[in-house]
């Protein structure tokens, strides 16, 4: 199904997005989600029908500005309590699998 904007979420597009979102989807998931997402995309396309250029986008429900805190220290969290929750730990650090990529 092609949406009103002409955008589609076919299997290839979903696969590319899944990679960007770091989710290793199975082929079955890719197929299933692609159909569902395309349908959802079609239903949300109507946002393009309203909202002219002169409408200011709203990113916050309340118009607050300049919320800051003073530059002071407060106690940190107990390291052991945090490391206990980690999947793998070595030398008081979080152990993570091999990183491929740049130096």
């Amino acid at each position: 199904m092609t949406s009103e904007t002409g955008n589609t979420l076919d299997v290839a597009a979903v696969a590319r997005l899944a990679e960007l979102a770091r989710i290793s989807l199975s082929d079955e998931e890719l197929q299933r989600y692609s159909g569902q997402l395309d349908q959802i995309l079609h239903s949300v396309d109507k946002v393009g029908e309203v909202a002219a250029d002169d409408v200011v986008p709203m990113s916050h429900p309340q118009p607050l500005v300049n919320v800051t805190r003073p530059d002071v220290n407060k106690p940190c969290v107990d390291r052991e309590e945090v490391l206990r929750q980690a999947p793998a730990v070595e030398d008081d650090r979080f152990r993570v699998p091999q990183i491929l990529g740049e130096e």
Binding site: D91, R93, R95, V96, Q98, I99, E102
Partner: peptide, 17 residues
């Protein structure tokens, strides 16, 4: 960590602070 070089290429894993 691990591997011969102590660099990211060839490392077996990494640890984070």
């Amino acid at each position: 960590a691990g591997g011969a070089t102590g660099r990211i290429q060839g490392a077996d894993y990494s640890i984070v602070d």
